[in-house]
């Protein structure tokens, strides 16, 4: 397992974490800044282009990028020796740096769980990827939208804590 803590492996994992993170948060912001606010402006007969083609493709890359970001992020924390202390928010190690990155890790974990266990199941119902009665679709779409908004909100402190560690 020594190769995993080789400096070049540490760098590669960080790069993969950033790449998958850009894919994830880029699509999250696409949903919240572009798709959701503009859906009401699209004529009904054209809406399926988004709901049947664009959104399912975006959701595919979105949810797998979320998983990849978490896997590479946790691996990076382990490589650098602070996985446990950071998840404990620096309480045991009395470290502001562990607390800072720990906040970011917890926000990221909550966001990824939101993606896989709230947004994705509800989007499947809302977009008709799984069959549900038509009257259940608006509630599913609303839950997915609010969970997506929650993640947009959390992406702000999450990214801050990720890049602010050197200040502590």
């Amino acid at each position: 397992m020594d190769f995993l803590t080789d400096p070049y492996a540490v760098f590669l994992v960080r790069w993969f974490h950033v790449l998958s993170g850009i894919m994830w948060i880029g699509l999250l912001w696409y949903f919240n800044f572009v798709q959701i606010p503009n859906m009401p402006k699209i004529p009904d007969e054209q809406k399926p282009a988004i709901s049947k083609v664009i959104a399912p493709a975006a959701l595919f890359w979105f949810r797998w990028a979320a998983l990849a970001t978490i896997v590479f992020g946790l691996l990076q924390a382990w490589q650098l020796g602070y996985l446990g202390p950071a998840l404990a928010l620096g309480v045991g190690s009395k470290s502001a740096a562990h607390m800072s990155i720990g906040f970011g890790m917890w926000f990221g974990l909550i966001m990824a769980l939101n993606v896989w266990f709230v947004i994705w199941p509800n989007q499947q119902k809302a977009l008709g990827i799984v069959e549900v009665p038509a009257e259940d679709k608006p509630a599913a779409a609303r839950i997915a939208m609010l969970a997506s908004r929650t993640n947009t909100m959390l992406s702000i402190p999450m990214s801050y804590s990720m890049v602010a560690v050197h200040l502590t």
Partner: peptide, 30 residues
């Protein structure tokens, strides 16, 4: 009452507020 997260603007304001609180906690805890 309307959920504040229904508005994108409020979502961003809440995100910034959480960030400020978090930054202060990190700065002054240890």
């Amino acid at each position: 009452m309307k959920n504040p997260l229904e508005s994108l603007q409020n979502t961003i304001l809440l995100g910034v507020a959480i960030t400020i609180v978090m930054a202060l906690i990190v700065k002054y805890t240890f």
